[in-house]
């Protein structure tokens, strides 16, 4: 065979090559294509599935309680009273407070990583922030219960009372460490990585030309950052915040473990609260009556709706924030 091929003119080699190849078959191609298409459509179907399952599950609760479900503050499953307001309040307050704590830290870190830090330090720190994102929520919750919580009434609460005590937010008894503030701190830790890394991407996408122009005017490092970089990246950083907010609203385990799980609306941040996600986590498995379960599914629907809207908003901000500033004159 060897000699035959080597000696023979190309024509016979071509003949043997062609004869050995399998004939072209369209069916395998079509099959694979449809298989892949099915999977891609499956992802879209999953979106529909989530929405539909929550919607249909929440139907009876919506019928029974109407809009009042969102505005009533009584949550008493034994009496059959279901009002989601305390959870909405708790979710909003803890998330916004967490966001308020996390944003300056995250943006500061992002600026440090892209503009100020020496080169050798950038990768390691960025890596560590990404690793922070990898810590499972339940582990952070465990750490918070046993390490962080005992410290709060001893150091943080008295300090806050002393400095900010004139605000109703920081008044009232401070005996329990399970509180809105504890939840906010945990949420802040959990959303730091995402705000940092998205802000960092945004800052990195600012063209170097901008920086060079500012340096050329004799600006200092910080002035370059403020004038050339931050003003350019404002919208994007706002998008990063909104993305962080979306994540904060859905945080479940660690928050459930430290927020105290009390369906009451209290003015003081030292008081325990409850969030949409944590009421589902705590009570769903024990929801024995249909009403109870449907009310919890309705809570899930609210959570789902809010996070979807927030995420879409963040997506828009990140997309258009960037293209608009990109086209700056």
């Amino acid at each position: 065979m060897t000699t035959a091929v080597l000696d023979a003119p190309a024509a016979s080699a071509a003949q043997s090559v062609a004869a050995r190849m399998k004939p072209v078959s369209r069916s395998a191609d079509t099959l694979f294509r449809w298989l892949c298409l099915g999977m891609a459509v499956g992802v879209l179907a999953l979106v529909v599935l989530v929405g539909w399952q929550l919607w249909s599950g929440a139907q009876s609760a919506i019928h029974k309680f109407g809009v009042g479900f969102l505005t009533r503050s009584a949550w008493d499953p034994v009496q059959g009273e279901f009002g989601a307001l305390p959870f909405i309040y708790g979710t909003l307050v803890s998330s916004l407070l967490g966001l308020a704590i996390a944003t300056p830290l995250a943006v500061g870190t992002a600026i440090f990583l892209t503009e100020l830090a020496p080169n050798w330090l950038r990768q390691p720190i960025a890596f560590l922030t990404e690793m922070l994102a990898a810590i499972p929520s339940v582990i952070l919750g465990l750490w918070a219960i046993f390490i962080m919580l005992p410290l709060l009434p001893r150091y943080l609460f008295p300090f806050l009372k002393k400095t900010l005590g004139f605000l109703p937010l920081f008044q009232g008894p401070t005996y329990s460490a399970y509180s809105m503030i504890a939840a906010a701190i945990i949420i802040a830790i959990m959303i730091l990585p995402i705000i940092t890394s998205v802000s960092r991407e945004i800052l990195r996408s600012v063209p170097d030309l901008q920086r060079e122009a500012a340096y050329g005017l004799g600006a200092t490092r910080w002035e370059v950052t403020r004038i050339a970089v931050l003003s350019y990246a404002k919208k994007g950083i706002f998008g990063a915040m909104i993305l962080g907010l979306g994540r904060a609203l859905g945080e479940t385990m660690a928050v459930t473990m430290v927020i105290g799980n009390t369906p009451k609306i209290a003015a003081s941040l030292f008081q325990p609260g409850y969030t949409l996600a944590s009421v589902i986590a705590n009570e769903f498995a024990e929801a024995t009556t249909d009403d109870y379960r449907n009310a919890l599914i309705a809570v899930g629907l609210v959570l789902f709706g809010v996070t979807v809207v927030i995420n879409l908003l963040a997506r828009l901000l990140l997309k258009f924030g960037n293209t608009q500033t990109g086209a700056v004159h």
Partner: peptide, 19 residues
């Protein structure tokens, strides 16, 4: 091009490689 078109014969593939 041969293998992904269904040619399996190792000896033949070696020949084609060299050629």
């Amino acid at each position: 091009g041969l293998r992904l078109n269904g040619v399996r014969d190792r000896a033949f593939l070696r020949e084609r490689t060299e050629d």
